[in-house]
């Protein structure tokens, strides 16, 4: 589960100090999906980065899957990200020098998993998203929807406890977006994964168990 209490974060923008998060509290139970909505620049991605141990808050505590992220060393956080978190980035962020299956296998390679079992697992995931026949293709040979589905497979290959997705359908047409959301929902139910989605799209937010609005640096629940 995710438990955030009193998190604040500010950035120095030249001479101006911009307070992005002002005492954010958040609890997402295991297997639950939470959507974070809000206007651009409201701090959604910052919150997601803090939940993903990619950024540190100025104050407050963040516990994800039982680990206090604010009290861990950077090397421990790297291991935690690899072991317990899956990321789906807004712009898929696939590695262009590697094929689809190599991209999916990458977190496992970082973890030092044996290549043979990892490859089988990656192929199973690709099959689940209908891309088994595209395993050997490079990202530039794939459509936007295919890339995002591969990014989701990559995020799930090590079966993380928590999946963090930043605008997972932001750059997709409605049909591809629908496919991606179906996939996330199926995988969540199958693996009991905790998910936090950042989105602008009210339709996407509606499909989540919990909807939170971030505005003026504060998080407010809109409904469950």
């Amino acid at each position: 589960m995710i438990a955030v209490a009193g998190v604040t974060k500010a950035y120095q923008d030249g001479a101006v100090r911009r307070q992005v998060l002002r005492g954010v509290d958040l609890v997402v139970a295991r297997g639950e999906t939470a959507a974070v909505v809000g206007p651009s620049g409201s701090g959604k991605s910052t919150l997601l980065n803090i939940l993903g141990a990619l950024d540190v808050p100025d104050a407050g505590s963040v516990r994800v899957d039982g680990v206090d992220l604010t009290r861990s060393r950077p090397s421990a956080l790297a291991g935690f990200r690899n072991r317990s978190l899956g990321f789906v980035f807004q712009f898929h962020q696939l590695l262009p020098d590697f094929t689809a299956i190599e991209n999916v296998m990458m977190p496992g390679r970082i973890a030092g998993r044996p290549t043979s079992s990892l490859s089988a697992q990656a192929l199973t995931l690709l099959d689940q998203v209908g891309l088994a026949d595209r395993a050997g293709a490079f990202p530039q040979q794939l459509s936007g929807g295919e890339r995002q589905r591969i990014a989701i497979c990559r995020a799930l290959v090590l079966e993380p406890a928590v999946l963090l997705a930043d605008e997972p359908t932001g750059n997709l047409d409605s049909r591809s977006g629908e496919q991606v959301l179906e996939l996330l929902d199926t995988l969540r139910r199958r693996r009991d994964t905790t998910m936090v989605l950042v989105t602008h799209n009210p339709e996407v937010a509606k499909r989540c168990g919990k909807v939170l609005r971030l505005d003026g640096g504060r998080l407010k629940a809109l409904g469950e």
């Binding site: 993903g52 990619l54 950077p74 790297a78 291991g79 990200r81 980035f89 590695l95 970082i110 990559r154």
Partner: peptide, 10 residues
């Protein structure tokens, strides 16, 4: 991206 996926700096 590799760092985000948990590749340590070393």
């Amino acid at each position: 991206v590799l760092a985000a996926m948990g590749a340590p700096p070393a």
